[in-house]
Amino acid sequence: MEILKALSIGALFGIGLYQLLRRNIIRSAIGLAITSNAVNLFLLSVGAYDGVVEAYAKAIGQRSDALPQALILTAIVISLGGFAFVLSLLYVISARYRTGDNDEVKGLSH
């Protein structure tokens, strides 16, 4: 399972990168979302305990590691905020350059 997980995270990350590198500005945004998903999944998976029950005080058995869960809870929230901000940046950029094409955004030549 861990190998499968590692491969999946790698694949997600690779797909995210590929999307980021595309010309279409909205695909780049999608790429960003995919990469942050991959990273969150990675963080969740490096907890010390492979639990079989959820991390509740009453649960009996090996609990899943609560610490990385709490941490990525924060991470997910922050990435949502960041993502929304990036989107509005993209919108402003596309309006200023009148394009949805990454390659048309070349501020240096102005």
């Binding site: 861990e2 590692a6 491969l7 995270i9 790698g10 690779g14 590929y18 991959a38 998976s45």
Partner: peptide, 16 residues
Amino acid sequence: ATAGGLLVTVLCLYAF
């Protein structure tokens, strides 16, 4: 992208 994916895979394997 493939290189990035591979790198992350290796990283994950090692980390796990």
